[in-house]
Design a protein around this nucleic acid. Structure first.
Length: 260
DNA sequence: ATGCCCAATATAATTGGA
């Protein structure tokens, strides 16, 4: 089972590039971020016609997450538990029913948090604390879990072409990385790093200042696996070439192959 | 020190992104 995460930066803008990548890469399950669409505005028929079940958690203008799956989806949860007043659509969960076993897939779009310090950074840290609590809660089930998405966290200096530039940024501040490590240290495995420790593997290149042409990227899209899910890990990768295609997102897909 | 580029909104400047 091939499971991917892809921040598409707007479903309307990616209405050709996303189906093209799906046809080429043939993932079974995809977590999408930044659909920038309400549920009713998401073009679900395009993906249903390609054989995907479609579950969305949208929002007008910004944010918005979705799961596409060739396998059945059950028990969908929309929104990160822990704060009923949070109106931003950044979290969706569903159980993917495989032939031999199932995996709980959580798609997430973690807040950017800039500028830091400030209210947006406070929101990021509070959101990460809520995520930590939700991860702990799900880990107690001892089911295979995959937390897939745009974390807006650069975990290590080798995950940025120019780490010094990010020193004061909400994506790389010590507090951000510490909060990320607290989540990982609950017992999760960074699937990509489990199979590839090479420095300079990126998942995002800014549209500005020729970042793609200069390979000035960062790795901020991650798939974190619970122990029972990491046991199923076959391989993982980043579809870097997607960034160089026609009308690309600023992120590229990251994926894992699971023995599911 | 800031904008660069891109997407969405609701008109044309503004907001958010990372």
């Amino acid at each position: 089972m091939k499971l991917a995460t892809f921040n598409i930066n707007g479903i309307k803008a990616r209405i050709e590039a996303l189906p093209a990548w799906l046809a080429e890469a043939k993932p079974d399950v995809v977590c999408l971020q930044e659909i920038k669409s309400v549920d009713e505005g998401f073009p679900r028929e395009i993906f249903e016609d390609m054989g995907f079940a479609v579950e969305t958690h949208g929002q007008k203008g910004f944010n918005g997450v979705a799961i596409l799956s060739r396998l059945p989806l059950e028990d969908v949860v929309r929104g990160l538990p822990g704060d009923a007043s949070d109106e931003q659509s950044r979290w969706i969960e569903a159980t993917v029913i495989g032939e031999s076993r199932s995996v709980r897939v959580c798609g997430l779009y973690l807040p950017n948090g800039n500028p830091a310090p400030g209210p947006k950074y406070d929101y990021k840290l509070a959101w990460m604390a809520r995520m930590e609590a939700r991860v702990a809660e799900l880990l107690a089930t001892e089911e295979p879990l995959a937390f897939c998405g745009d974390y807006n966290v650069i975990p290590q200096p080798e995950d940025a072409a120019k780490p010094a530039v990010w020193a004061e940024d909400a994506l790389f501040l010590p507090q951000t990385r510490a909060a990320y490590r607290r989540i990982v240290n609950l017992g999760l495995t960074d699937a990509f790093r489990a199979v590839d420790q090479t420095p300079g593997r990126y998942s995002f290149w800014d549209y500005q200042a020729g970042a793609w042409e200069r390979n000035n990227g960062i790795r901020i899209d991650h798939l974190l696996l619970s122990p029972q899910c990491a046991d199923l890990l076959v391989t993982a990768g980043i579809d870097k070439a997607v960034r160089g295609l026609e009308k690309p997102s600023d992120h590229v897909p990251v994926w894992v192959e699971l023995a599911l």
